[in-house]
Each structure stands twice: as structure tokens, then as C-alpha cells.
Amino acid sequence: MQARVYVTLKPGVLDPQGNAVRGSLEALGFSKVQDVRLGKYLEIELAETDPMAARASVEEMCRRLLVNPVVESFRVDVPGTP
């Protein structure tokens, strides 16, 4: 099964890349853009049939490698889990 992981900067953490993208969007005429936050999206294929076990495993991956908890937070989507 596939797990989807969204890694985002915590609120308040400066995001120079997001700011640069916002500036370029404004330059293109997208005048209503107020803010852009740039994060990461991962698709992880797992040899696992138990959705809850898959979720637990991916959350562990986030804590140990995929996310730096000092400045980032994450959300995990696994089909069949809350």
C-alpha cells in the first residue's frame, strides 16, 4: 500500500523559498497571492496490508529521518486509517 507524507515548515519559521515563489507569482500577475509555504511531499510504497501498521511505521520514519522536528511538522495519509 501507499502512504503519503506531507512535510511542512512550522508556523513562524522563515521560508525563503516560499517567499521567492510568492514574489515570482506576484510578478506574473497573480496579485491575490498572500503567502506561499514550500514543503515536501513523499509517496512511500510499503509491503504491508495492515493500514494501522503502515501508518505507525511511516510515522516512525518521519520521526527518525523524514522530518526535522526543530522546524518541521508532518502529516501522514494512509488509506483506511483516520
Binding site: V13, P16, Q17, A20, N68, V70
Partner: peptide, 16 residues
């Protein structure tokens, strides 16, 4: 920093 042997983290430069 990533190894947790020092506190904090180093992010992208402010000035692009």
C-alpha cells in the same frame, strides 16, 4: 545538528 549532537538546525539563507 541533524545527529542531535548540537542543538538547532541550519536553514536556507534568508537572501536567496
Amino acid at each position: 545538528c541533524e545527529a542531535g549532537l548540537l542543538p538547532g538546525v541550519l536553514g536556507r539563507n534568508e537572501g536567496l
